[in-house]
Design a protein around this nucleic acid. Sequence first.
DNA 1: CTCAGCGATATTGTTGAACAATCATGAATG
DNA 2: CATTCATGATTGTTCAACAATATCGCTGAG
Lengths: 233, 233
Amino acid sequence: MTPAGDEAQVGGIVGDFPPANGQPLADVICDRVREMLIAGDFGPGEKLLEQQVAAQFGISRNTLREVFRLLTSQGLLVHYPNRGVFVAAPGAAAVVDIYRMRRVIQQGAVQAAIPGHPALVRMKELAQRAKEQAADGDWRAVGTLNMEFHRAMVELCDSPRLSAAFGLLLAELRLVFGRIRETAVLHTPYIETNGVLVDLLEQGRLAAAADELDGYLLKSERSILAALQRLKS
Amino acid sequence: MTPAGDEAQVGGIVGDFPPANGQPLADVICDRVREMLIAGDFGPGEKLLEQQVAAQFGISRNTLREVFRLLTSQGLLVHYPNRGVFVAAPGAAAVVDIYRMRRVIQQGAVQAAIPGHPALVRMKELAQRAKEQAADGDWRAVGTLNMEFHRAMVELCDSPRLSAAFGLLLAELRLVFGRIRETAVLHTPYIETNGVLVDLLEQGRLAAAADELDGYLLKSERSILAALQRLKS
DNA sequence: CTCAGCGATATTGTTGAACAATCATGAATG
DNA sequence: CATTCATGATTGTTCAACAATATCGCTGAG
């Protein structure tokens, strides 16, 4: 779809880091590209040319291919054999699926909650900070804090694998957010919900917390789908 | 640990497939290596030398690197920078984590069960077949069917992403199974449980089903940990 | 005999160039 | 206006090379 090579900033080699750390180049670049993807530096559905992107980051085509394989397996890129790699453009179906998985994981997290758990403490802290940032009108920060809040919630399970899987989900979701203008409306209504949730969990009222979470997920999913719908028109 | 290059079959190029299909070589080889890993064709913790493995499959080192990146991100291989790639050797900690995640996902699946769902039909079918194979004494088949049974259970959620994540878990579990001798004991006691579970789900008795599943996961986890313990001595 | 230091060797990390296979583009044709 | 076909661009894959790093075996000191 998108023709090749017309970024806002073309021709500038982005790579310029200190001689590299201990970890392989592919991993470093992978992180950078992921950040750029969720920051919206590449348009959704945009084709990523190997030559161009490799030059942009100052790495070889072979190394870039490893990066593409990684990000493709994480759902942030889509690979059509012999046609190239494209930025994923998650649609309504993807959002529905993501929220289905969120429900399963996060309900499980709520069920695993125990008062005093470090993750719960962190949730409380994040909810508080979000409230403050909302007062300051920094909606971007509110969005980030909301993400971290839910990430912390999954941390209640004490399962690295589960947290990792959830992280992939959130990354994909952020890809969707990138396409939506009114991100404020997307996160703001829930800073109160988050506070309520923490209180319920601290009191060990798991059933009530589960209900609260279910309501959140339902509303959140709906508002995203609505915003996505508005986009396509 | 394991010194380089002393497989049972060295020097023989395994690659010999028709000129390749439509999908990239890396994907094809990735599937093959994954099969070999869960089949135990590589020992746990064994070092995989790029040159050797590349030659073994008749592919270039660069292509193999893409494969390694894939399988590493799937948890079947472990990558130590500048040291190489090793076959993952999931220990007790990994098993505990895997079962933590299984509990979350499969409890969610049970909760999502609705009578008449295609996945539920498939579960019934698989449970029945396992019973037959057990009568025939084909324990390997019983194990496979048990796996498929639980995979089908997750399918109850109708979430491709969740099913994919669960698939990774199962693959890692199979890596553990590969190290254990008495696999019969590992699967046999549960063919009855599976039947009970299907019945409960068909009757919509979700709470009872959840209990049954919890008991299964607990016992299964314990027996694996015990077998693993026995190994180390 | 044990162990630290050190050099030789092997392996990984990364690049560049090359080529066949495949796809996309657009012009010529009916 | 649709079809065919040649052209060019891009992907898929390999090879060869090199620097950086790790591994191994040896020597020598204690």
